[in-house]
């Protein structure tokens, strides 16, 4: 299936969704002017991927900032991944956060509470 590669900007995250190389990552900052239309292709991609997923899916979130409107769309993405997991597939969410950013760490914990899918918190320095 088609690969999605979106370059990051000061207000939109970098997005890589590649079924073949098994690389799935959203990183950077997320405060798009139109949050729904920014994440629409990501959700559509996941919709299609869910029809025939890889045996193991590792999805990386490595955000340094996201606004409240984005938080809702991130939940939509996580719920899509939860669905893939519910269908009997191996799914792991890796939530990367700067080690000194408690709010980003807590955001990960909250998502892990809401969705029923294996969730790993990954602190990084820098």
């Amino acid at each position: 299936m088609e690969t999605i590669k979106i370059q990051g900007t000061e207000d939109t995250p970098k997005v890589t969704l590649d079924k073949e190389t098994e690389l799935m990552e959203i990183s950077g900052r997320s405060l798009p002017e139109d949050v729904a239309s920014f994440y629409d292709p990501v959700l559509s991609w996941l919709e299609e991927y869910a029809q025939d997923p890889n045996p193991k899916t590792i999805f990386n979130f490595k955000l340094v900032y996201f606004n409240t409107a984005s938080s809702k769309l991130l939940l939509d993405i996580l719920m899509k991944l939860e669905e893939i997991h519910e269908n009997g597939n191996d799914v792991l969410i890796r939530w990367h956060f700067p080690e000194d950013d408690e709010d980003m760490e807590e955001a990960g914990e909250e998502y892990a509470d809401i969705v029923d899918v294996p969730f790993e918190q990954v602190p990084y320095s820098g």
Binding site: A36, A69, S71, K72
Partner: peptide, 14 residues
């Protein structure tokens, strides 16, 4: 976040 809907302008009420 779970129950709210995004407004036309993209506000999430959060």
């Amino acid at each position: 976040m779970k129950e709210g809907r995004l407004s036309e302008k993209g506000g999430a009420g959060l």
